[in-house]
Design a binder for these strands. Sequence first.
DNA 1: ATAGGGTTAG
Length: 593
Amino acid sequence: MNLTNSLVIKFKFRGNFITTPFLLHSNFSTNRSMLPKITNLNHALNLFDEMSQRRPLPSVVQFNQLLHLVTKMKHFSSSLHLFNQMCSLGVPVNEYSMSIAIKCCCQLNHTKDGFALLGSCFRRAIPPDVYIFSALLDGLVIEDKIFEAEMLFKKLVKQKLCEPNVVMYNTMIKGLCKFGNNVTAVALLRLMEQKNCQPSIITYSTIIDSLCKDRLIDDAFKLFKEMVFEKRILPNVITYTSLIRGLCNIGRWDEASNLLKEMEDENISPNVQTFNVLVDAFCKEGKVEEAEAVINIMIERDKAPDLVTYSSLIDGYCLRGEMIKAREIFDSMTLRGLVPNVVTYSSLLNGYCKNRNIEEAMQMFRQMTRQGLKPNVVTYNTMLQGLFQVGHCVAARKLFDEMHAQGLIPDHCTYRIVLDGLCNNHLVEDALSLFHLLGDAKLNYDIFVYSILIDGAGKCGKFHIARNLFHDLIDKGLQPDVRTYTVMINAFCQEGILHDAKHLFLKMEECGYPPNNVTYCVLLQGYLKNKHCDDVEMLLQEMGDRGYSLDASTLSLFIDHIAAGLLDRSMLKLLGKLVPKELLNDPRLCDWE
DNA sequence: ATAGGGTTAG
Protein backbone atom coordinates (compact mmCIF):
# COMPACT_ATOMS: atom_id res chain seq x y z
CA MET A 1 0.00 0.00 0.00
CA ASN A 2 1.32 3.37 -0.95
CA LEU A 3 1.50 5.47 2.17
CA THR A 4 1.68 8.73 0.34
CA ASN A 5 -1.54 8.00 -1.44
CA SER A 6 -3.30 6.66 1.57
CA LEU A 7 -2.60 9.69 3.64
CA VAL A 8 -4.20 12.56 1.89
CA ILE A 9 -5.09 15.72 3.65
CA LYS A 10 -7.38 18.34 2.32
CA PHE A 11 -6.06 21.83 2.64
CA LYS A 12 -8.27 24.79 2.23
CA PHE A 13 -6.67 26.97 -0.34
CA ARG A 14 -8.18 30.33 -1.29
CA GLY A 15 -11.57 29.01 -0.43
CA ASN A 16 -11.24 25.95 -2.65
CA PHE A 17 -10.39 22.49 -1.55
CA ILE A 18 -7.32 21.03 -3.11
CA THR A 19 -6.01 17.63 -2.28
CA THR A 20 -2.37 17.36 -1.54
CA PRO A 21 -0.40 14.30 -0.64
CA PHE A 22 0.59 14.65 2.98
CA LEU A 23 4.32 14.20 2.92
CA LEU A 24 5.57 12.61 6.05
CA HIS A 25 8.64 13.96 7.74
CA SER A 26 10.49 13.35 10.97
CA ASN A 27 8.08 14.98 13.41
CA PHE A 28 5.23 12.96 12.00
CA SER A 29 7.04 9.67 12.16
CA THR A 30 4.66 8.19 14.73
CA ASN A 31 1.82 9.16 12.46
CA ARG A 32 3.43 7.42 9.60
CA SER A 33 3.53 4.11 11.36
CA MET A 34 0.18 4.34 13.16
CA LEU A 35 -2.46 6.03 11.05
CA PRO A 36 -2.62 3.69 8.08
CA LYS A 37 -2.81 0.73 10.39
CA ILE A 38 -5.97 1.89 12.08
CA THR A 39 -8.48 -0.78 11.31
CA ASN A 40 -10.41 -0.98 14.52
CA LEU A 41 -11.63 1.12 17.37
CA ASN A 42 -8.90 0.08 19.79
CA HIS A 43 -6.15 1.25 17.48
CA ALA A 44 -7.87 4.58 17.16
CA LEU A 45 -8.33 4.98 20.91
CA ASN A 46 -4.70 4.08 21.57
CA LEU A 47 -3.53 6.58 19.02
CA PHE A 48 -5.70 9.23 20.61
CA ASP A 49 -4.11 8.53 24.01
CA GLU A 50 -0.69 8.71 22.50
CA MET A 51 -1.48 11.94 20.68
CA SER A 52 -2.90 13.60 23.76
CA GLN A 53 0.35 12.94 25.65
CA ARG A 54 2.54 14.63 23.05
CA ARG A 55 3.85 18.09 23.78
CA PRO A 56 3.17 20.28 22.03
CA LEU A 57 -0.25 18.82 21.29
CA PRO A 58 -0.86 17.78 17.70
CA SER A 59 -2.92 20.17 15.65
CA VAL A 60 -6.69 20.14 15.59
CA VAL A 61 -6.45 18.86 12.01
CA GLN A 62 -4.81 15.64 13.16
CA PHE A 63 -7.34 15.16 15.91
CA ASN A 64 -10.13 15.76 13.42
CA GLN A 65 -8.72 13.14 11.09
CA LEU A 66 -8.83 10.59 13.86
CA LEU A 67 -12.32 11.66 14.87
CA HIS A 68 -13.42 11.33 11.28
CA LEU A 69 -12.01 7.80 11.12
CA VAL A 70 -13.80 6.68 14.26
CA THR A 71 -17.04 8.18 12.96
CA LYS A 72 -16.57 6.38 9.64
CA MET A 73 -16.43 3.14 11.59
CA LYS A 74 -19.82 4.13 13.03
CA HIS A 75 -18.51 4.26 16.61
CA PHE A 76 -20.50 7.39 17.26
CA SER A 77 -20.41 7.33 21.05
CA SER A 78 -16.66 6.78 21.10
CA SER A 79 -16.22 9.59 18.66
CA LEU A 80 -18.27 11.88 20.89
CA HIS A 81 -16.22 10.81 23.87
CA LEU A 82 -13.01 11.70 22.02
CA PHE A 83 -14.49 15.05 21.05
CA ASN A 84 -15.17 15.80 24.71
CA GLN A 85 -11.63 14.81 25.61
CA MET A 86 -10.32 17.10 22.89
CA CYS A 87 -12.23 19.94 24.48
CA SER A 88 -10.84 19.13 27.95
CA LEU A 89 -7.33 18.95 26.54
CA GLY A 90 -7.78 22.46 25.25
CA VAL A 91 -7.50 21.57 21.58
CA PRO A 92 -8.95 24.55 19.72
CA VAL A 93 -11.83 22.70 18.08
CA ASN A 94 -13.03 24.14 14.77
CA GLU A 95 -16.12 23.87 12.58
CA TYR A 96 -14.97 20.48 11.32
CA SER A 97 -14.69 19.05 14.83
CA MET A 98 -18.09 20.50 15.64
CA SER A 99 -19.70 19.04 12.55
CA ILE A 100 -18.41 15.58 13.45
CA ALA A 101 -19.62 15.85 17.03
CA ILE A 102 -23.04 17.07 15.92
CA LYS A 103 -23.23 14.35 13.30
CA CYS A 104 -22.53 11.74 16.00
CA CYS A 105 -25.28 13.05 18.28
CA CYS A 106 -27.75 13.04 15.43
CA GLN A 107 -26.86 9.51 14.27
CA LEU A 108 -27.35 8.33 17.87
CA ASN A 109 -30.91 9.63 17.86
CA HIS A 110 -29.88 12.48 20.12
CA THR A 111 -30.56 15.36 17.79
CA LYS A 112 -31.44 17.48 20.81
CA ASP A 113 -27.81 17.23 21.94
CA GLY A 114 -26.81 18.14 18.42
CA PHE A 115 -28.74 21.38 18.71
CA ALA A 116 -27.14 21.99 22.11
CA LEU A 117 -23.76 21.72 20.39
CA LEU A 118 -24.98 24.19 17.77
CA GLY A 119 -25.47 26.58 20.67
CA SER A 120 -21.92 25.97 21.75
CA CYS A 121 -20.77 26.80 18.21
CA PHE A 122 -22.15 30.28 18.70
CA ARG A 123 -20.50 30.58 22.14
CA ARG A 124 -17.18 29.52 20.66
CA ALA A 125 -17.63 31.97 17.78
CA ILE A 126 -17.57 29.12 15.28
CA PRO A 127 -20.02 30.03 12.53
CA PRO A 128 -22.06 26.91 11.71
CA ASP A 129 -21.61 25.80 8.13
CA VAL A 130 -23.64 23.76 5.68
CA TYR A 131 -22.14 20.49 6.99
CA ILE A 132 -23.33 21.22 10.50
CA PHE A 133 -26.81 22.14 9.35
CA SER A 134 -26.97 19.07 7.11
CA ALA A 135 -26.11 16.84 10.06
CA LEU A 136 -28.86 18.43 12.14
CA LEU A 137 -31.35 18.15 9.30
CA ASP A 138 -30.50 14.47 8.94
CA GLY A 139 -30.97 13.99 12.68
CA LEU A 140 -34.49 15.39 12.48
CA VAL A 141 -35.23 13.12 9.53
CA ILE A 142 -33.86 10.08 11.38
CA GLU A 143 -36.12 10.87 14.32
CA ASP A 144 -39.13 11.24 11.99
CA LYS A 145 -39.47 14.92 12.84
CA ILE A 146 -40.32 15.85 9.31
CA PHE A 147 -42.17 19.01 10.24
CA GLU A 148 -39.19 20.34 12.21
CA ALA A 149 -36.90 19.31 9.36
CA GLU A 150 -38.91 21.30 6.86
CA MET A 151 -38.99 24.28 9.20
CA LEU A 152 -35.23 24.18 9.64
CA PHE A 153 -34.63 23.87 5.91
CA LYS A 154 -36.93 26.77 5.10
CA LYS A 155 -35.43 28.90 7.84
CA LEU A 156 -31.90 28.29 6.57
CA VAL A 157 -32.89 29.33 3.06
CA LYS A 158 -35.09 32.28 4.01
CA GLN A 159 -32.69 33.78 6.51
CA LYS A 160 -29.73 32.91 4.28
CA LEU A 161 -28.02 31.16 7.18
CA CYS A 162 -26.38 28.87 4.66
CA GLU A 163 -26.63 28.03 0.99
CA PRO A 164 -27.92 24.44 0.75
CA ASN A 165 -25.59 22.17 -1.18
CA VAL A 166 -26.47 18.95 -2.93
CA VAL A 167 -26.05 16.93 0.28
CA MET A 168 -28.48 19.13 2.15
CA TYR A 169 -31.04 18.98 -0.65
CA ASN A 170 -30.62 15.20 -0.76
CA THR A 171 -31.16 14.96 2.99
CA MET A 172 -34.33 17.03 2.81
CA ILE A 173 -35.53 14.95 -0.15
CA LYS A 174 -34.82 11.75 1.77
CA GLY A 175 -36.99 13.06 4.62
CA LEU A 176 -39.86 13.96 2.31
CA CYS A 177 -39.66 10.53 0.67
CA LYS A 178 -39.61 8.82 4.05
CA PHE A 179 -42.99 10.39 4.67
CA GLY A 180 -44.31 9.46 1.26
CA ASN A 181 -44.32 13.03 0.04
CA ASN A 182 -42.97 12.28 -3.42
CA VAL A 183 -44.61 15.33 -4.93
CA THR A 184 -42.69 17.76 -2.74
CA ALA A 185 -39.54 15.70 -3.19
CA VAL A 186 -39.77 16.18 -6.95
CA ALA A 187 -40.57 19.87 -6.45
CA LEU A 188 -37.38 20.21 -4.43
CA LEU A 189 -35.46 18.47 -7.20
CA ARG A 190 -36.78 21.13 -9.59
CA LEU A 191 -35.89 23.88 -7.14
CA MET A 192 -32.30 22.73 -6.90
CA GLU A 193 -31.98 22.73 -10.68
CA GLN A 194 -33.37 26.25 -10.68
CA LYS A 195 -30.81 27.29 -8.11
CA ASN A 196 -28.06 25.76 -10.17
CA CYS A 197 -27.33 23.02 -7.69
CA GLN A 198 -27.04 19.97 -9.93
CA PRO A 199 -28.95 16.93 -8.68
CA SER A 200 -26.75 13.88 -8.26
CA ILE A 201 -27.34 10.19 -8.72
CA ILE A 202 -28.25 10.13 -5.03
CA THR A 203 -30.98 12.72 -5.55
CA TYR A 204 -32.51 10.68 -8.36
CA SER A 205 -32.03 7.30 -6.67
CA THR A 206 -33.69 8.53 -3.48
CA ILE A 207 -36.83 9.65 -5.29
CA ILE A 208 -36.86 6.66 -7.65
CA ASP A 209 -36.69 4.31 -4.68
CA SER A 210 -39.53 6.09 -2.92
CA LEU A 211 -41.73 5.98 -6.04
CA CYS A 212 -41.01 2.27 -6.39
CA LYS A 213 -41.99 1.66 -2.77
CA ASP A 214 -45.28 3.44 -3.43
CA ARG A 215 -45.77 1.24 -6.50
CA LEU A 216 -45.58 4.27 -8.77
CA ILE A 217 -43.26 2.38 -11.04
CA ASP A 218 -44.08 4.33 -14.19
CA ASP A 219 -43.26 7.63 -12.51
CA ALA A 220 -40.04 6.05 -11.30
CA PHE A 221 -39.07 5.13 -14.85
CA LYS A 222 -39.92 8.61 -16.09
CA LEU A 223 -37.45 10.01 -13.62
CA PHE A 224 -34.95 7.29 -14.46
CA LYS A 225 -35.07 8.24 -18.15
CA GLU A 226 -34.75 11.92 -17.32
CA MET A 227 -31.67 11.13 -15.25
CA VAL A 228 -30.03 9.01 -17.96
CA PHE A 229 -30.97 10.81 -21.15
CA GLU A 230 -31.31 14.43 -20.10
CA LYS A 231 -28.90 14.69 -17.23
CA ARG A 232 -26.50 12.08 -18.58
CA ILE A 233 -26.11 10.58 -15.14
CA LEU A 234 -25.28 6.88 -15.30
CA PRO A 235 -27.41 4.67 -13.07
CA ASN A 236 -25.57 2.46 -10.62
CA VAL A 237 -26.34 -0.81 -8.88
CA ILE A 238 -28.50 0.96 -6.28
CA THR A 239 -30.69 2.66 -8.87
CA TYR A 240 -31.20 -0.62 -10.72
CA THR A 241 -31.89 -2.55 -7.51
CA SER A 242 -34.65 -0.13 -6.51
CA LEU A 243 -36.32 -0.43 -9.90
CA ILE A 244 -36.05 -4.21 -9.97
CA ARG A 245 -37.60 -4.42 -6.52
CA GLY A 246 -40.40 -2.09 -7.63
CA LEU A 247 -41.14 -4.27 -10.65
CA CYS A 248 -41.02 -7.51 -8.63
CA ASN A 249 -43.36 -6.11 -6.00
CA ILE A 250 -46.10 -5.51 -8.55
CA GLY A 251 -45.48 -8.80 -10.30
CA ARG A 252 -43.96 -7.38 -13.49
CA TRP A 253 -41.42 -10.19 -13.59
CA ASP A 254 -40.50 -10.00 -17.27
CA GLU A 255 -39.56 -6.36 -17.00
CA ALA A 256 -37.58 -7.06 -13.85
CA SER A 257 -35.68 -9.77 -15.64
CA ASN A 258 -35.05 -7.49 -18.64
CA LEU A 259 -33.75 -4.77 -16.37
CA LEU A 260 -31.42 -7.25 -14.73
CA LYS A 261 -30.06 -8.14 -18.16
CA GLU A 262 -29.76 -4.47 -19.08
CA MET A 263 -27.72 -3.72 -16.00
CA GLU A 264 -25.38 -6.63 -16.63
CA ASP A 265 -24.98 -5.44 -20.25
CA GLU A 266 -23.93 -2.10 -18.82
CA ASN A 267 -21.30 -3.96 -16.83
CA ILE A 268 -22.94 -3.24 -13.53
CA SER A 269 -22.86 -6.45 -11.53
CA PRO A 270 -25.73 -7.23 -9.23
CA ASN A 271 -24.60 -7.28 -5.62
CA VAL A 272 -25.88 -9.16 -2.60
CA GLN A 273 -28.73 -6.72 -2.16
CA THR A 274 -29.83 -7.00 -5.78
CA PHE A 275 -29.91 -10.77 -5.45
CA ASN A 276 -31.77 -10.47 -2.17
CA VAL A 277 -34.55 -8.60 -3.96
CA LEU A 278 -34.93 -11.54 -6.34
CA VAL A 279 -34.79 -14.13 -3.56
CA ASP A 280 -37.40 -12.23 -1.58
CA ALA A 281 -39.69 -11.79 -4.56
CA PHE A 282 -39.56 -15.49 -5.39
CA CYS A 283 -40.12 -16.49 -1.78
CA LYS A 284 -43.14 -14.22 -1.40
CA GLU A 285 -44.66 -16.10 -4.34
CA GLY A 286 -43.83 -19.41 -2.69
CA LYS A 287 -41.31 -20.19 -5.44
CA VAL A 288 -38.55 -21.40 -3.16
CA GLU A 289 -36.91 -23.54 -5.85
CA GLU A 290 -36.26 -20.44 -7.93
CA ALA A 291 -35.04 -18.64 -4.83
CA GLU A 292 -32.62 -21.46 -4.11
CA ALA A 293 -31.37 -21.21 -7.69
CA VAL A 294 -30.65 -17.52 -7.19
CA ILE A 295 -28.79 -18.34 -3.98
CA ASN A 296 -26.65 -20.84 -5.89
CA ILE A 297 -25.76 -18.14 -8.41
CA MET A 298 -24.85 -15.85 -5.53
CA ILE A 299 -22.48 -18.43 -4.14
CA GLU A 300 -20.97 -19.08 -7.57
CA ARG A 301 -20.37 -15.38 -8.06
CA ASP A 302 -18.82 -14.92 -4.66
CA LYS A 303 -21.69 -12.80 -3.40
CA ALA A 304 -22.20 -14.65 -0.15
CA PRO A 305 -25.84 -14.84 0.91
CA ASP A 306 -26.37 -12.98 4.18
CA LEU A 307 -28.92 -12.87 6.99
CA VAL A 308 -31.38 -11.08 4.76
CA THR A 309 -31.16 -13.76 2.08
CA TYR A 310 -31.82 -16.58 4.51
CA SER A 311 -34.58 -14.69 6.32
CA SER A 312 -36.43 -14.41 3.03
CA LEU A 313 -35.88 -18.08 2.28
CA ILE A 314 -37.20 -19.03 5.70
CA ASP A 315 -40.27 -16.90 4.97
CA GLY A 316 -40.72 -18.73 1.69
CA TYR A 317 -40.70 -22.18 3.28
CA CYS A 318 -42.95 -20.99 6.11
CA LEU A 319 -45.43 -19.69 3.57
CA ARG A 320 -45.61 -23.16 2.02
CA GLY A 321 -46.02 -24.70 5.45
CA GLU A 322 -42.72 -26.54 5.10
CA MET A 323 -41.61 -25.81 8.64
CA ILE A 324 -39.06 -28.60 8.85
CA LYS A 325 -37.22 -27.16 5.88
CA ALA A 326 -37.52 -23.65 7.31
CA ARG A 327 -36.04 -24.84 10.57
CA GLU A 328 -33.27 -26.67 8.74
CA ILE A 329 -32.20 -23.45 7.05
CA PHE A 330 -32.38 -21.57 10.31
CA ASP A 331 -30.24 -24.15 12.08
CA SER A 332 -27.72 -24.37 9.24
CA MET A 333 -27.10 -20.62 9.17
CA THR A 334 -24.72 -20.85 12.09
CA LEU A 335 -22.62 -23.35 10.13
CA ARG A 336 -22.30 -20.76 7.39
CA GLY A 337 -21.03 -18.26 9.93
CA LEU A 338 -24.27 -16.34 10.14
CA VAL A 339 -25.86 -15.80 13.53
CA PRO A 340 -29.64 -15.46 13.40
CA ASN A 341 -30.78 -12.08 14.66
CA VAL A 342 -34.13 -10.81 15.90
CA VAL A 343 -35.49 -10.55 12.38
CA THR A 344 -34.52 -14.11 11.46
CA TYR A 345 -36.14 -15.36 14.65
CA SER A 346 -39.26 -13.32 13.95
CA SER A 347 -39.55 -14.87 10.49
CA LEU A 348 -39.35 -18.38 11.90
CA LEU A 349 -41.70 -17.57 14.77
CA ASN A 350 -44.18 -16.14 12.30
CA GLY A 351 -43.93 -19.39 10.35
CA TYR A 352 -44.66 -21.53 13.39
CA CYS A 353 -47.53 -19.24 14.37
CA LYS A 354 -49.11 -19.14 10.92
CA ASN A 355 -48.87 -22.92 10.80
CA ARG A 356 -50.51 -23.07 14.20
CA ASN A 357 -47.59 -24.67 16.02
CA ILE A 358 -47.66 -22.32 18.96
CA GLU A 359 -45.72 -24.68 21.24
CA GLU A 360 -42.69 -24.70 18.96
CA ALA A 361 -43.00 -20.94 18.49
CA MET A 362 -43.02 -20.41 22.27
CA GLN A 363 -39.98 -22.63 22.67
CA MET A 364 -38.03 -20.72 20.02
CA PHE A 365 -39.19 -17.44 21.53
CA ARG A 366 -37.63 -18.46 24.85
CA GLN A 367 -34.53 -19.78 23.09
CA MET A 368 -33.85 -16.44 21.46
CA THR A 369 -33.97 -14.73 24.85
CA ARG A 370 -31.54 -17.30 26.27
CA GLN A 371 -29.20 -16.49 23.39
CA GLY A 372 -29.17 -12.90 24.50
CA LEU A 373 -31.44 -11.56 21.76
CA LYS A 374 -34.06 -9.10 22.90
CA PRO A 375 -37.47 -9.66 21.28
CA ASN A 376 -38.72 -6.41 19.80
CA VAL A 377 -42.23 -5.12 19.16
CA VAL A 378 -42.49 -7.09 15.93
CA THR A 379 -41.51 -10.32 17.70
CA TYR A 380 -44.15 -9.77 20.38
CA ASN A 381 -46.73 -8.88 17.75
CA THR A 382 -46.00 -12.12 15.93
CA MET A 383 -46.35 -14.19 19.09
CA LEU A 384 -49.50 -12.38 20.17
CA GLN A 385 -51.13 -13.06 16.85
CA GLY A 386 -50.11 -16.73 17.07
CA LEU A 387 -51.56 -17.11 20.56
CA PHE A 388 -54.85 -15.46 19.64
CA GLN A 389 -55.13 -17.57 16.53
CA VAL A 390 -55.21 -20.76 18.58
CA GLY A 391 -57.44 -19.19 21.19
CA HIS A 392 -54.88 -18.83 23.99
CA CYS A 393 -56.20 -15.49 25.12
CA VAL A 394 -54.91 -15.72 28.68
CA ALA A 395 -51.39 -16.50 27.50
CA ALA A 396 -51.68 -13.63 25.05
CA ARG A 397 -52.59 -11.30 27.87
CA LYS A 398 -49.58 -12.51 29.86
CA LEU A 399 -47.29 -11.87 26.91
CA PHE A 400 -48.78 -8.44 26.38
CA ASP A 401 -47.95 -7.60 30.01
CA GLU A 402 -44.46 -9.05 29.60
CA MET A 403 -43.91 -6.85 26.59
CA HIS A 404 -44.88 -3.86 28.66
CA ALA A 405 -42.56 -4.94 31.49
CA GLN A 406 -39.71 -5.11 28.98
CA GLY A 407 -40.26 -1.43 28.34
CA LEU A 408 -41.56 -1.97 24.82
CA ILE A 409 -44.27 0.36 23.60
CA PRO A 410 -47.05 -1.39 21.68
CA ASP A 411 -47.48 0.04 18.20
CA HIS A 412 -50.47 0.19 15.85
CA CYS A 413 -49.93 -3.40 14.79
CA THR A 414 -50.02 -4.57 18.39
CA TYR A 415 -53.37 -2.96 19.02
CA ARG A 416 -54.81 -4.20 15.77
CA ILE A 417 -53.66 -7.73 16.58
CA VAL A 418 -54.97 -7.62 20.16
CA LEU A 419 -58.32 -6.10 19.21
CA ASP A 420 -58.77 -8.52 16.34
CA GLY A 421 -57.71 -11.42 18.55
CA LEU A 422 -60.21 -10.50 21.24
CA CYS A 423 -63.01 -10.09 18.69
CA ASN A 424 -62.30 -13.42 17.04
CA ASN A 425 -62.34 -15.14 20.41
CA HIS A 426 -65.77 -13.78 21.28
CA LEU A 427 -64.36 -11.15 23.62
CA VAL A 428 -65.78 -8.13 21.83
CA GLU A 429 -66.65 -6.49 25.15
CA ASP A 430 -63.01 -6.71 26.19
CA ALA A 431 -61.93 -5.33 22.83
CA LEU A 432 -64.28 -2.40 23.16
CA SER A 433 -63.28 -1.59 26.72
CA LEU A 434 -59.62 -1.77 25.73
CA PHE A 435 -60.35 0.57 22.83
CA HIS A 436 -62.11 3.06 25.08
CA LEU A 437 -59.60 2.65 27.86
CA LEU A 438 -56.72 3.45 25.56
CA GLY A 439 -58.36 6.54 24.19
CA ASP A 440 -55.06 6.96 22.44
CA ALA A 441 -55.46 9.74 19.96
CA LYS A 442 -53.69 7.81 17.24
CA LEU A 443 -55.58 4.58 17.84
CA ASN A 444 -58.88 6.40 17.85
CA TYR A 445 -58.02 7.78 14.46
CA ASP A 446 -57.02 4.46 12.99
CA ILE A 447 -59.51 3.39 10.36
CA PHE A 448 -58.24 -0.21 10.48
CA VAL A 449 -59.10 -0.44 14.16
CA TYR A 450 -62.63 0.67 13.39
CA SER A 451 -62.96 -1.99 10.72
CA ILE A 452 -61.81 -4.66 13.17
CA LEU A 453 -64.22 -3.55 15.87
CA ILE A 454 -67.22 -3.11 13.57
CA ASP A 455 -66.59 -6.54 12.14
CA GLY A 456 -66.17 -8.05 15.61
CA ALA A 457 -69.28 -6.41 17.00
CA GLY A 458 -71.33 -7.34 13.94
CA LYS A 459 -70.28 -10.97 14.03
CA CYS A 460 -71.17 -11.24 17.72
CA GLY A 461 -74.65 -9.92 17.12
CA LYS A 462 -73.96 -6.56 18.74
CA PHE A 463 -75.34 -4.67 15.81
CA HIS A 464 -76.03 -1.41 17.62
CA ILE A 465 -72.41 -1.20 18.71
CA ALA A 466 -71.23 -1.74 15.14
CA ARG A 467 -73.53 1.02 13.88
CA ASN A 468 -72.46 3.41 16.64
CA LEU A 469 -68.81 2.81 15.82
CA PHE A 470 -69.49 3.59 12.18
CA HIS A 471 -71.19 6.87 13.05
CA ASP A 472 -68.42 7.59 15.51
CA LEU A 473 -65.72 7.37 12.88
CA ILE A 474 -67.69 9.53 10.45
CA ASP A 475 -68.12 12.14 13.18
CA LYS A 476 -64.39 12.15 13.71
CA GLY A 477 -63.88 12.96 10.07
CA LEU A 478 -62.28 9.62 9.28
CA GLN A 479 -62.69 8.30 5.76
CA PRO A 480 -64.00 4.74 5.71
CA ASP A 481 -62.19 2.54 3.21
CA VAL A 482 -63.45 -0.44 1.23
CA ARG A 483 -63.00 -2.76 4.21
CA THR A 484 -64.84 -0.48 6.60
CA TYR A 485 -67.79 -0.23 4.22
CA THR A 486 -67.70 -3.97 3.64
CA VAL A 487 -67.78 -4.94 7.32
CA MET A 488 -70.58 -2.44 7.95
CA ILE A 489 -72.59 -3.82 5.02
CA ASN A 490 -72.01 -7.28 6.48
CA ALA A 491 -73.33 -6.10 9.83
CA PHE A 492 -76.47 -4.68 8.20
CA CYS A 493 -77.00 -7.94 6.33
CA GLN A 494 -76.66 -10.02 9.47
CA GLU A 495 -79.22 -7.84 11.16
CA GLY A 496 -81.50 -8.26 8.15
CA ILE A 497 -81.57 -4.54 7.34
CA LEU A 498 -81.00 -5.00 3.64
CA HIS A 499 -82.25 -1.57 2.75
CA ASP A 500 -79.40 0.10 4.66
CA ALA A 501 -76.92 -2.43 3.35
CA LYS A 502 -77.83 -1.54 -0.21
CA HIS A 503 -77.79 2.16 0.55
CA LEU A 504 -74.24 1.93 1.90
CA PHE A 505 -73.23 -0.22 -1.03
CA LEU A 506 -74.28 2.53 -3.42
CA LYS A 507 -72.82 5.26 -1.26
CA MET A 508 -69.34 3.80 -1.15
CA GLU A 509 -69.11 3.97 -4.91
CA GLU A 510 -70.19 7.63 -4.82
CA CYS A 511 -67.49 8.35 -2.26
CA GLY A 512 -64.81 7.00 -4.56
CA TYR A 513 -64.48 3.60 -2.92
CA PRO A 514 -65.98 1.16 -5.40
CA PRO A 515 -67.00 -2.19 -3.87
CA ASN A 516 -64.58 -5.01 -4.50
CA ASN A 517 -65.03 -8.76 -4.84
CA VAL A 518 -65.52 -9.21 -1.13
CA THR A 519 -68.12 -6.46 -0.87
CA TYR A 520 -70.19 -8.04 -3.64
CA CYS A 521 -69.97 -11.47 -2.03
CA VAL A 522 -70.97 -10.09 1.36
CA LEU A 523 -74.00 -8.31 -0.07
CA LEU A 524 -75.02 -11.32 -2.17
CA GLN A 525 -74.80 -13.62 0.84
CA GLY A 526 -76.88 -11.13 2.78
CA TYR A 527 -79.55 -11.14 0.08
CA LEU A 528 -79.61 -14.92 -0.23
CA LYS A 529 -79.70 -15.60 3.49
CA ASN A 530 -82.56 -13.16 3.88
CA LYS A 531 -84.36 -14.62 0.85
CA HIS A 532 -84.36 -11.27 -0.87
CA CYS A 533 -83.50 -12.15 -4.42
CA ASP A 534 -84.67 -9.18 -6.51
CA ASP A 535 -81.28 -7.57 -7.03
CA VAL A 536 -79.22 -10.74 -7.16
CA GLU A 537 -79.15 -11.12 -10.91
CA MET A 538 -78.20 -7.51 -11.46
CA LEU A 539 -75.37 -7.77 -8.92
CA LEU A 540 -73.99 -10.87 -10.62
CA GLN A 541 -74.12 -9.05 -13.94
CA GLU A 542 -72.18 -6.12 -12.46
CA MET A 543 -69.58 -8.44 -11.01
CA GLY A 544 -69.01 -9.94 -14.43
CA ASP A 545 -68.66 -6.48 -15.97
CA ARG A 546 -66.06 -5.56 -13.38
CA GLY A 547 -64.12 -8.75 -13.91
CA TYR A 548 -64.81 -9.99 -10.39
CA SER A 549 -65.41 -13.58 -9.39
CA LEU A 550 -67.28 -15.37 -6.63
CA ASP A 551 -65.57 -16.90 -3.63
CA ALA A 552 -66.13 -20.50 -2.63
CA SER A 553 -68.60 -19.89 0.19
CA THR A 554 -70.82 -17.56 -1.85
CA LEU A 555 -70.84 -20.00 -4.74
CA SER A 556 -71.76 -22.80 -2.37
CA LEU A 557 -74.65 -20.79 -1.05
CA PHE A 558 -75.93 -20.18 -4.57
CA ILE A 559 -75.78 -23.88 -5.39
CA ASP A 560 -77.66 -24.75 -2.21
CA HIS A 561 -80.35 -22.21 -3.06
CA ILE A 562 -80.74 -23.56 -6.57
CA ALA A 563 -80.86 -27.12 -5.30
CA ALA A 564 -83.56 -26.13 -2.81
CA GLY A 565 -85.57 -24.52 -5.59
CA LEU A 566 -85.22 -21.06 -4.10
CA LEU A 567 -83.48 -19.75 -7.20
CA ASP A 568 -84.15 -20.47 -10.84
CA ARG A 569 -81.73 -22.84 -12.61
CA SER A 570 -81.38 -20.24 -15.35
CA MET A 571 -79.03 -18.42 -13.04
CA LEU A 572 -76.44 -21.17 -13.45
CA LYS A 573 -75.23 -19.76 -16.73
CA LEU A 574 -74.55 -16.39 -15.16
CA LEU A 575 -72.83 -18.02 -12.19
CA GLY A 576 -70.64 -20.10 -14.49
CA LYS A 577 -69.00 -16.94 -15.78
CA LEU A 578 -68.09 -15.89 -12.26
CA VAL A 579 -66.37 -19.07 -11.14
CA PRO A 580 -62.64 -18.70 -10.64
CA LYS A 581 -60.52 -21.37 -12.36
CA GLU A 582 -59.45 -23.03 -9.13
CA LEU A 583 -63.09 -23.82 -8.23
CA LEU A 584 -63.98 -25.31 -11.61
CA ASN A 585 -63.18 -28.85 -10.56
CA ASP A 586 -65.83 -28.78 -7.85
CA PRO A 587 -67.81 -32.02 -8.51
CA ARG A 588 -71.06 -30.22 -7.83
CA LEU A 589 -70.49 -28.07 -10.91
CA CYS A 590 -70.26 -31.00 -13.33
CA ASP A 591 -73.73 -30.70 -14.79
CA TRP A 592 -73.50 -26.99 -15.46
CA GLU A 593 -74.75 -25.61 -18.76
C1' DA B 1 -20.83 13.91 5.12
C1' DT B 2 -26.14 12.43 1.07
C1' DA B 3 -29.24 6.90 -1.82
C1' DG B 4 -30.96 0.54 -1.96
C1' DG B 5 -32.21 -5.29 1.62
C1' DG B 6 -35.04 -8.93 5.98
C1' DT B 7 -39.79 -9.53 10.69
C1' DT B 8 -45.82 -7.77 12.51
C1' DA B 9 -51.29 -5.54 10.66
C1' DG B 10 -57.91 -5.72 8.96
